[in-house]
């Protein structure tokens, strides 16, 4: 599913899950604009699978898509998509949720988008416990603009804006979500797509602010600059640097430095923003 140019309908083998995408419905074939070896295609596919398996009413689960490499993902997403400005997805989703509480917005973000320009909205969305899902597609770099330093770029990596490998401490989105008050938190990577699907299903049924980070390889930008030019190199780099949460419990902070702790980090219940708002509206009715 990664890259299949629309050469003509008859030449393309229909993708098993591609028929569920909007693009397939519209054009008769699915296609993405992702680079060769990018992990985002498989994530989109996983989302499609979950939508099919759960038999979701697509208009009730609108995707809010921001600006980043994944912005073209709607071509292979199963539902209705509203594309916003760089980083503003959670704020827009808050408006959507408050205006029509029947909807459950799914806001898709990149690392620059969620952890740099839109961090404020992330913290406050989690604090308010808006009933929505935030998916962070973390490729450790600004891909679309040409491979600049991202807030998640591992320390000492080479990027367009750190040619001398000068680095900054990366931010841990999961910890940030925890202290901000998100009620469902998980992190996976492209080698644990099935786990991601399970988490995504859980998040769909979870009432509150769900946050799922998924670490993905970026062969074109991050890989090219850091000796991981092939898809599999990046894939393995992330895989080898990931540690399951139950294993990580027994490890020291030094051992965990630069590692991705994958797994389900939090699953609690707390009244959502709409619970509180609707209570007041109910109270004032008489």
């Amino acid at each position: 599913m990664s890259y299949s140019a629309p050469r003509g309908k008859e030449n393309i083998t229909p993708h098993p899950y591609g028929t569920n995408t909007q693009m397939h419905k519209l054009m008769g074939f699915p296609f993405t604009m992702f680079c060769k070896g990018c992990g985002y295609g498989s994530i989109a596919q996983a989302i499609c699978r979950v939508f099919k398996e759960e038999n979701l009413q697509e208009e009730l689960f609108p995707f809010i898509v921001n600006i980043g490499c994944y912005s073209s993902m709607p071509t292979v997403l199963p539902g209705k998509t509203f594309m916003t400005l760089h980083g503003r997805g959670i704020a827009v989703a808050t408006g959507v949720k408050m205006a029509n509480p029947k909807l459950k917005p799914i806001s898709i973000h990149g690392d620059g988008d969620l952890l740099s320009i839109g961090t404020n909205h992330f913290l406050h969305g989690a604090r308010r416990n808006v009933d929505m899902i935030v998916i962070l597609l973390n490729n450790n770099i600004y891909g679309m603009t040409g491979g600049q330093l991202a807030p998640t770029t591992p320390m000492g990596s080479k990027t367009s804006t750190t040619p001398y490998r000068y680095g900054e401490e990366p931010i841990d989105a999961v910890e940030l979500a925890k202290v901000s008050g998100a009620t469902y938190i998980a992190r996976w990577n492209t080698s644990t797509i099935r786990d991601f699907m399970k988490s995504f299903k859980k998040a769909l049924h979870h009432k509150g602010f769900s946050f799922i980070e998924i670490v993905s390889q970026c062969p074109t930008q991050f890989g090219h600059k850091n000796n991981l030019p092939k898809a599999l190199d990046g894939f393995n780099f992330i895989k080898n640097n990931s540690i399951r949460i139950n294993k990580a419990k027994d490890m020291s902070p030094e051992e965990l430095k630069g590692k991705y702790i994958i797994g389900e980090h939090l699953d609690i219940d707390r009244p959502t923003l709409w619970d509180r708002k609707s209570q007041i509206i109910e109270k004032l009715k008489d």
Partner: peptide
């Protein structure tokens, strides 16, 4: 809230106007 509406005090003006776009788009 008296008329079934929603008031949001957002984190900044950027979030405020973004939420307004979201709500307008949803039909309010």
């Amino acid at each position: 809230p008296e008329v079934g509406g929603v008031f949001m005090q957002m984190e900044d003006e950027i979030a405020s106007i973004s939420a307004v776009v979201g709500a307008t788009l949803t039909g309010k």
